[in-house]
């Protein structure tokens, strides 16, 4: 064989060294701060209840008392320990938003892949449905669903999925359509690979980046919607411990104990900021216009 050319193509210097396994977007200052904060709040929300000094539902003193030795952050509008309720009240936000986000991506990616790859009527039908959902203000859609289906937390979670999946579906559809015109996908079609195989092997791995780019934003949106519905009293109901619910319940006693409102509001705010920082860092290291 013509060895001349073969040797002239130089062997590239080894494989990439396994430098740091930490992704680049977590190595920027805002990414690192955001990720640490996020992790801290999630740990607080999931495991905090193990350290609660009191039951979250039993009154321990006069409603609206300021912080004291018994109650680190005082008592709430019904005389329960704010700190204990705070330790219990994050799981609903983080957990439900997490479940909703998983649902959003399961449906959004499936719909987007099918619509983007299909050359038939399936595409316009799916995408018109998506357009239709997007023609409502999101919160209004949630309120309409609650009116029809009654106040229950599962209605809110399903509603959040319905409201958020169209955004994912649109992105996935556009990416799928673009990738399916690439040479390697056409080669796969020409050699007769089956459609599910093409979607799974050739297309899906190559649209992971645009899909992942918005996970943070969607999760943050799920947090906001679920917390807001709880705040309005249309999701979780008393006596559940939930940060959103706490903010509205304790409004009555802010003049005597500001912590009943400030602490859960601050945690929700920090959670949202943490996610936003990580998402922003991700977008910037991917060279989008965030720079």
């Amino acid at each position: 064989m013509e060895a001349g050319v073969a040797t002239a193509l130089p062997e590239k210097a080894g494989r990439r060294p396994l430098v740091s396994r930490v992704p680049r977007f977590l190595r920027t200052p805002s990414g690192a701060v955001g990720a640490t904060l996020f992790l801290a709040i999630v740990l607080f929300a999931v495991f905090g209840r193990l350290f609660a000094p009191h039951s979250p539902e039993a009154p321990i003193g006069i409603p609206g008392s300021p912080p004291g030795p018994e109650a680190l952050l005082g008592t709430d509008a019904l005389g329960r320990d704010v700190f204990s309720r705070l330790l219990y009240g994050g799981l609903s936000v983080v957990g439900l938003a997490g479940i909703a986000t998983v649902g959003v991506y399961a449906i959004g990616v499936t719909v987007g892949l099918v619509a983007g790859y299909s050359r038939s009527l399936v595409d316009p039908i799916l995408m018109r449905t998506v357009d239709f959902i997007l023609s409502f203000p999101a919160l209004l859609l949630l309120l309409i669903l609650v009116t029809g289906l009654g106040t229950a937390i599962w209605v809110t979670v399903v509603g959040v999925v319905i409201v958020l999946f169209p955004g994912v579906a649109r992105i996935v559809r556009a990416a799928t359509e673009e990738v399916s015109q690439r040479g390697y996908v056409e080669s796969a079609v020409a050699r007769g690979e089956k459609t599910p195989g093409i979607l799974a092997r050739e297309i899906l791995p190559n649209i992971v980046t645009p899909i992942m780019a918005d996970v943070g934003i969607r999760f943050a949106a799920a947090v906001i919607f679920i917390a807001s519905m709880n705040y309005l009293g249309l999701g979780l109901r008393p006596p559940s411990s939930d940060w959103g619910l706490m903010v509205s319940e304790n409004r009555r006693v802010i003049t005597t104990n500001i912590w009943g409102v400030l602490a859960p509001a601050a945690l929700l705010g920090l959670l949202a900021i943490a996610v936003a920082l990580v998402a922003d860092s991700y977008a910037r290291t991917r060279g989008r216009s965030g720079r």
Binding site: V223, A227, S228, V247, A272, I273, V275
Partner: peptide, 8 residues
């Protein structure tokens, strides 16, 4: 921009 409206 990250805050939920009711929190802000």
């Amino acid at each position: 921009g990250a805050f939920p409206e009711f929190v802000f």
